Simulated scan of single mutants.
Amino acid sequence: MKEETQRVPQATSKRLPLYYRFIQKLANEGKERISSQELSEAMKIDSATIRRDFSYFGALGKKGYGYDVRRLLEFFRKTLDQDEAVNLALVGVGSLGNAFMKYNFEKNHNTRIVVAFDPNAAEEGTMSNGIPIFRPELLEEKLPDFGVQMAVLTVPARAAQDMTDRLAALGVKGILNFAPVRLNVPEGVRVHSIDLSIEMQALIYAIRNDEKNSQTSI
């Protein structure tokens, strides 16, 4: 994502791809303009939150008119660097890693997995879904050949910090971490962690809380 003139909160940054995906859908449907209230109702995001998010990037809309869909689409495409491909490394080709390789981000986003590392790979390397897979001990030798900027980490918790240290030392600037452990990284490296068990527990809590509120209102 390109650097902005003012610091954008992380919560806003995480919503930008959601806005882009939805605006892209509107453009494909031929819609020319939309208000923050219409966006709010369609995306289930408070309209005040949408206006605040958009305000970090200047005057994206006009009072009484709303937002021009094509202008928003072009803005988010440039802001999220959708025209510039980002090469990813996948570290850990287990069940989750295999799913990523079969999906590959390039089909729907501007990112693509170009190389993977897994301890079960053949010593000379192997190919899967058009992606070369090497053993982790070859990381320092092979990774520089692929112009990798980011990595997806799907390794056991015990191996996550060591792999993170090695990736950071090789110049990787962003890590999407699926290992259930908090990672320490040097300044200039960003980590976004996704703990599937926590997400599931949060979903269960939300469902049960909705059920309780529904029973209370009867």
Results as ranks from 00 to 15, higher is better:
8 V>P: 04
11 A>F: 11
11 A>L: 12
12 T>M: 01
12 T>W: 05
15 R>F: 07
16 L>H: 02
17 P>E: 03
26 L>E: 05
27 A>M: 06
33 R>L: 04
33 R>F: 11
39 L>M: 14
39 L>F: 07
44 K>H: 13
49 T>P: 00
52 R>V: 06
57 F>E: 02
59 A>F: 07
60 L>R: 02
60 L>K: 03
61 G>F: 01
62 K>F: 03
63 K>S: 13
67 Y>M: 00
68 D>Y: 05
74 E>N: 09
74 E>H: 15
77 R>N: 12
81 D>K: 13
82 Q>W: 15
87 N>V: 10
94 G>D: 06
99 A>R: 12
99 A>E: 14
100 F>D: 00
100 F>Y: 10
104 N>I: 11
109 H>Q: 10
114 V>L: 06
114 V>R: 02
118 D>W: 08
122 A>C: 00
122 A>H: 06
123 E>V: 12
138 L>E: 13
144 P>Q: 00
152 V>Q: 08
153 L>T: 06
154 T>I: 03
160 A>V: 07
168 A>N: 07
170 L>W: 05
178 F>I: 11
186 P>Y: 03
191 V>P: 06
191 V>Q: 11
193 S>M: 01
196 L>R: 08
197 S>V: 12
198 I>V: 14
199 E>F: 14
207 I>N: 06
209 N>K: 15
